[in-house]
């Protein structure tokens, strides 16, 4: 390397030094330490004691662990596709030539801005079994609403419903992508006699596929780690632990029971699940994603 190259290396590293320190202190060291803790019995107050695979073995025989995993998958399987479809649908509607588009866009986006704690409060009140307005509105339609928060069959659907309310962020991302689709594509399709459906499935979807992929991956990562709302609304997990999600159980182990080793083991299992699902999603969608640059 020449003198100049050395100099640039020095300056470059100096500029990224905040990141390097952050990486070492808040990512690399913690990640390694948490692998180590996951093989230890560790309660913060005394030194970690090596126990080998005990935490992992305990985890796989722990009924509550499986329940939390089941709840999390249940939530993800319903919430994720629902949110993806609803936000795309809204974005497509807003992408038509309509009046007052900015107003509509703001209205649909607004709920996603509401702080999670506040939205948990709002929904606790809306879904209230006795005075909740949702059941009152259902009553007007002649439907006897369930006791959303107290009936173990309905706690997860409640949270799924809430997640749909917050789709504003991905809607805005879709809308930006839709507005980037070249008009000429649609015009030539019309000349070829394509129907609205054909245009949607053969032009719109392929053209915005990278964004669909982005929302999908973000959705997987977000849904599997859902924490604040179930924790605030159901505390220890709700009726019969029906709203005990993976991240909530992990938190409980770490900070309620001080089972840091067990919590770390859970975190790594979560990482593997997320990694695996992201990989599957990437593999299965790769062929269908269209990148303009390629």
């Amino acid at each position: 390397m020449t003198r100049r190259e050395w100099r640039n290396l020095g300056i470059g590293l100096a500029f990224i030094s905040p990141w390097i320190i952050g990486f070492l202190a808040f990512t690399l060291y913690p990640a390694l330490a948490s692998i180590y803790y996951s093989f230890c019995d560790y309660d913060v107050f005394s030194r970690p004691v090596w126990v080998g695979l005990l935490n992992y073995r305990d985890m796989f025989t722990d009924k509550v662990f499986w329940k939390s995993l089941y709840n999390t998958f249940y939530y993800t399987i319903f919430s994720l596709p629902l949110c993806l479809v609803v936000s795309l649908l809204i974005a497509v509607m807003l992408n038509q030539q309509i009046k007052a588009r900015p107003v509509f866009r703001t209205v649909y986006f607004l709920p996603s801005l509401v702080p999670m704690v506040a939205s948990a409060m709002i929904w606790l009140w809306i879904l209230n079994g006795k005075y909740g307005i949702l059941n009152y509105l259902l009553g007007l339609l002649g439907i006897q609403g369930p006791d959303w928060l107290a009936d173990e069959k309905w706690t997860k659907p409640s949270l799924i419903l809430m997640s749909v309310w917050g789709v504003g962020g991905s809607m805005v991302i879709y809308l930006a992508a839709l507005q980037d689709v070249p008009r000429e594509l649609y015009e030539s399709a019309v000349i070829d006699g394509a129907s609205a459906w054909q245009k949607f499935f053969h032009i719109t979807i392929p053209m915005i596929s990278p964004v669909i992929y982005f929302n999908l991956i973000m959705g997987i990562i977000g849904a599997l780690q859902v924490f604040a709302q179930p924790y605030i609304m159901f505390g220890g997990g709700g009726p019969n632990r029906s709203a005990l999600f993976y991240a909530v159980y992990l938190y409980q182990n770490a900070f309620d029971y001080y089972e840091m080793g067990f919590a770390s083991a859970m975190a790594w299992v979560l990482f593997i699940i997320i990694f695996f699902l992201t990989w599957v999603a990437t593999k299965t969608t790769r062929r269908h994603i269209y990148y303009a640059g390629e």
Partner: peptide, 27 residues
């Protein structure tokens, strides 16, 4: 700034985005 290994280090930075918070939370 052009410096040797920049892109590799940047890839490492991108990869850290994959790590969910619970993994580093306890340490």
């Amino acid at each position: 700034i052009q410096w040797r290994g920049r892109n590799k280090v940047f890839l490492v930075a991108l990869a850290t985005m994959m790590i969910p918070f619970p993994v580093v939370m306890v340490p």
